[in-house]
Simulated scan of single mutants.
Amino acid sequence: MPVNESITDSITQTNTKVLGDTPASAMGNLFMSSSQALGTSAYGGANDQQQAQIVMQAATVQAVNSMMAIGAAVIGRASEEILEKG
Protein backbone atom coordinates (compact mmCIF):
# COMPACT_ATOMS: atom_id res chain seq x y z
CA MET A 1 0.00 0.00 0.00
CA PRO A 2 1.67 3.26 -1.06
CA VAL A 3 1.88 6.16 1.39
CA ASN A 4 1.27 9.70 0.30
CA GLU A 5 4.57 11.59 -0.09
CA SER A 6 3.28 14.61 1.82
CA ILE A 7 2.75 12.41 4.90
CA THR A 8 6.24 10.95 4.79
CA ASP A 9 7.64 14.42 4.16
CA SER A 10 5.75 15.78 7.18
CA ILE A 11 7.06 12.99 9.46
CA THR A 12 10.60 13.53 8.20
CA GLN A 13 10.35 17.26 8.93
CA THR A 14 9.01 16.57 12.43
CA ASN A 15 11.83 14.14 13.19
CA THR A 16 14.39 16.62 11.86
CA LYS A 17 12.94 19.38 14.05
CA VAL A 18 13.09 17.16 17.16
CA LEU A 19 16.69 16.26 16.42
CA GLY A 20 17.52 19.91 15.78
CA ASP A 21 15.93 21.06 19.05
CA THR A 22 17.66 18.46 21.23
CA PRO A 23 21.05 20.22 21.63
CA ALA A 24 19.36 23.50 22.54
CA SER A 25 17.16 21.77 25.12
CA ALA A 26 20.15 19.95 26.57
CA MET A 27 22.11 23.18 26.90
CA GLY A 28 19.11 24.91 28.48
CA ASN A 29 18.86 22.13 31.07
CA LEU A 30 22.59 22.34 31.74
CA PHE A 31 22.43 26.12 32.21
CA MET A 32 19.46 25.84 34.56
CA SER A 33 21.07 23.19 36.75
CA SER A 34 24.38 25.10 36.80
CA SER A 35 22.60 28.31 37.78
CA GLN A 36 20.76 26.51 40.58
CA ALA A 37 23.99 25.01 41.88
CA LEU A 38 25.84 28.34 41.78
CA GLY A 39 22.98 30.13 43.51
CA THR A 40 22.84 27.56 46.27
CA SER A 41 26.62 27.78 46.66
CA ALA A 42 26.49 31.57 46.98
CA TYR A 43 23.72 31.33 49.56
CA GLY A 44 25.73 28.77 51.53
CA GLY A 45 28.83 30.99 51.46
CA ALA A 46 26.93 34.02 52.71
CA ASN A 47 25.29 31.95 55.45
CA ASP A 48 28.67 30.55 56.53
CA GLN A 49 30.11 34.06 56.74
CA GLN A 50 27.20 35.20 58.87
CA GLN A 51 27.56 32.27 61.26
CA ALA A 52 31.34 32.80 61.50
CA GLN A 53 30.78 36.47 62.33
CA ILE A 54 28.43 35.51 65.17
CA VAL A 55 31.00 33.05 66.56
CA MET A 56 33.79 35.65 66.33
CA GLN A 57 31.66 38.25 68.10
CA ALA A 58 30.84 35.79 70.89
CA ALA A 59 34.54 34.92 71.26
CA THR A 60 35.42 38.62 71.49
CA VAL A 61 32.81 39.18 74.19
CA GLN A 62 34.13 36.20 76.16
CA ALA A 63 37.71 37.48 75.84
CA VAL A 64 36.73 40.95 77.07
CA ASN A 65 34.80 39.42 79.96
CA SER A 66 37.83 37.30 80.87
CA MET A 67 40.13 40.35 80.81
CA MET A 68 37.72 42.32 82.97
CA ALA A 69 37.44 39.46 85.46
CA ILE A 70 41.22 39.11 85.68
CA GLY A 71 41.52 42.82 86.46
CA ALA A 72 38.90 42.57 89.20
CA ALA A 73 40.62 39.50 90.65
CA VAL A 74 43.98 41.30 90.74
CA ILE A 75 42.46 44.34 92.41
CA GLY A 76 40.66 42.12 94.91
CA ARG A 77 43.84 40.21 95.73
CA ALA A 78 45.86 43.42 96.12
CA SER A 79 43.15 44.90 98.34
CA GLU A 80 43.13 41.77 100.48
CA GLU A 81 46.91 41.95 100.98
CA ILE A 82 46.70 45.63 101.91
CA LEU A 83 43.95 44.94 104.42
CA GLU A 84 45.85 42.03 105.96
CA LYS A 85 49.00 44.13 106.41
CA GLY A 86 47.22 47.24 107.49
Rank of each mutant, 00 (worst) to 15 (best):
A46E: 09
G39K: 06
P23A: 04
M67D: 14
M27C: 03
A46V: 08
V3Q: 14
E80F: 11
V64A: 12
I11R: 03
L30C: 07
M56E: 13
S25K: 07
T60F: 01
F31S: 14
A78W: 11
T8S: 05
A46G: 04
G44N: 14
G45H: 03
P2F: 00
L30Q: 14
G44E: 14
Q36P: 15
Q51H: 15
I70L: 04
P23G: 03
T60W: 01
T60N: 08
T8Y: 02
T14H: 00
G20E: 14
G71H: 05
A58Y: 03
Q13E: 02
A42W: 05
T60R: 04
T14A: 00
D21M: 06
G20L: 06
A52M: 01
I70C: 01
A73G: 05
M32A: 15
N15D: 08
I82V: 09
L83H: 15
L38K: 08
S79I: 06
G28F: 07
A59M: 13
M27K: 11
S10D: 04
M67K: 11
K17G: 04
Q62C: 00
E84D: 04
G28N: 10
I7T: 05
G44I: 11
Y43M: 08
T8H: 02
N29L: 15
S10F: 01
M68L: 12
I54C: 06
S66W: 11
T8D: 06
N47W: 06
P23S: 03
Q49T: 12
G44F: 09
F31T: 14
I75W: 01
A73D: 09
S34W: 02
T14F: 00
N15Y: 05
T8F: 02
V18Y: 09
N65I: 06
M27V: 10
K17D: 13
V18D: 09
M32S: 15
T14K: 00
Q51P: 11
A37L: 12
V64K: 09
T60H: 04
A69R: 02
I54M: 10
I75S: 07
Q57D: 15
K17W: 10
A63Q: 11
G71S: 08
I11W: 03
M1F: 01
G71L: 06
V74H: 02
G71D: 05
G86T: 13
I54A: 11
G86P: 05
G71F: 01
L19M: 13
F31M: 14
S66F: 11
Q57W: 11
T22E: 04
I7K: 03
S10L: 01
T16I: 05
A63M: 06
N15S: 08
F31V: 15
A46D: 08
V61R: 14
G20T: 07
M32P: 06
T8A: 02
R77Q: 10
T14V: 01
P2C: 00
A24S: 05
L83M: 15
S33A: 14
D21G: 04
T22H: 04
A24P: 00
Q53L: 02
S35H: 13
T40G: 08
E81N: 01
N65M: 09
S35Q: 13
F31H: 14
T16L: 08
Q36W: 15
L30T: 13
V64L: 10
D48G: 07
S35T: 13
N47T: 11
G86D: 06
L83V: 15
A73V: 04
E81F: 04
D48T: 12
